[in-house]
Write a protein that binds this DNA or RNA. Structure first.
Length: 224
DNA sequence: TCATTAAATTGTT
DNA sequence: AACAATTTAATGA
């Protein structure tokens, strides 16, 4: 299992802090273990923390009134999330749920704002994070309208390995076809077929609950 | 370690 | 949506 130190070592903003400030940050952070299906936070909760994923995989989703799940993003190790609601001082807008055994770091809002007030690299990190996420969602919006299901699956998988938002990831994604379906906005069956088509094209390799990316560039440019 | 069973996931229609 | 097949995890000999 990875530790808080692993997460901090992989986070650009943390390596820019003085030893003193990093220590202050470290002591303010709380660690929480989440079993599959457990909520990191729920829609409507007050935004008291900024979240960092130490290990595991989470999803940010919204549930429609009829119970249909729409997943907006998956959050792998080394990613940080929740800055949007904290900055706006508003309640959480989405549910965040562990997809498998996970460990998250909770940075109190007070620490978050202290870093924001005193540290330029931290500001740059947040700015870049918001900008990259905006670009990713705009891309998803565009793909949703233009792409065939195969291409949507391809682009979604490529997005999960986004270098800026999710640094230092292996090309190995542990997720079920059903969860991928929630993320892509397609049925489990359709995802299943698309994955096999992509495997035949030599872009990925599929195994039980595991997708291995062989050609990320090929996935990005699939169907465009 | 191996066999059995239940649960989760995948393949197919 | 339904059903069969496969993989994994858990249990106990």
């Amino acid at each position: 299992m990875r530790s808080l130190e692993n997460l901090l070592a992989a986070s650009k903003w943390a390596s820019a802090l003085s030893a003193e400030d990093l220590q202050r940050t470290r002591t303010a952070v709380v660690i929480r273990e989440l079993q599959p299906g457990v909520y990191a936070c729920r829609k409507g909760d007050p935004s008291n923390f900024w979240f960092g994923v130490i290990d595991g995989l989470l999803k940010a989703e919204s549930l429609s009134e009829t119970g249909k799940a729409v997943t907006f993003a998956t959050l792998p190790s080394n990613s940080w999330f929740g800055e949007g609601s904290i900055l706006k001082g508003e309640a959480r807008k989405y549910d965040v749920i562990a997809l498998r055994d996970s460990r998250v770091a909770l940075m109190p809002a007070a620490t978050f704002f202290w870093l924001l007030d005193t540290n330029i690299p931290f500001n740059r990190f947040i700015l870049t994070q918001l900008n990259e996420r905006l670009g990713q969602f705009m891309g998803a919006f565009e793909h949703d309208r233009l792409d065939e299901p195969e291409a949507r699956v391809a682009h979604t998988i490529a997005d999960m390995l986004h270098p800026q938002l999710y640094p230092n990831r292996e090309g190995r994604i542990e997720i079920s076809h059903e969860e991928l379906g929630h993320l892509v906005g397609a049925s489990r069956q359709r995802v299943n077929q698309a994955l096999h088509a992509l495997e035949k094209s030599g872009l990925i390799k599929v195994a039980y609950r595991v997708i291995t990316v062989l050609d990320i560039e090929g996935l990005r440019t699939f169907g465009v």
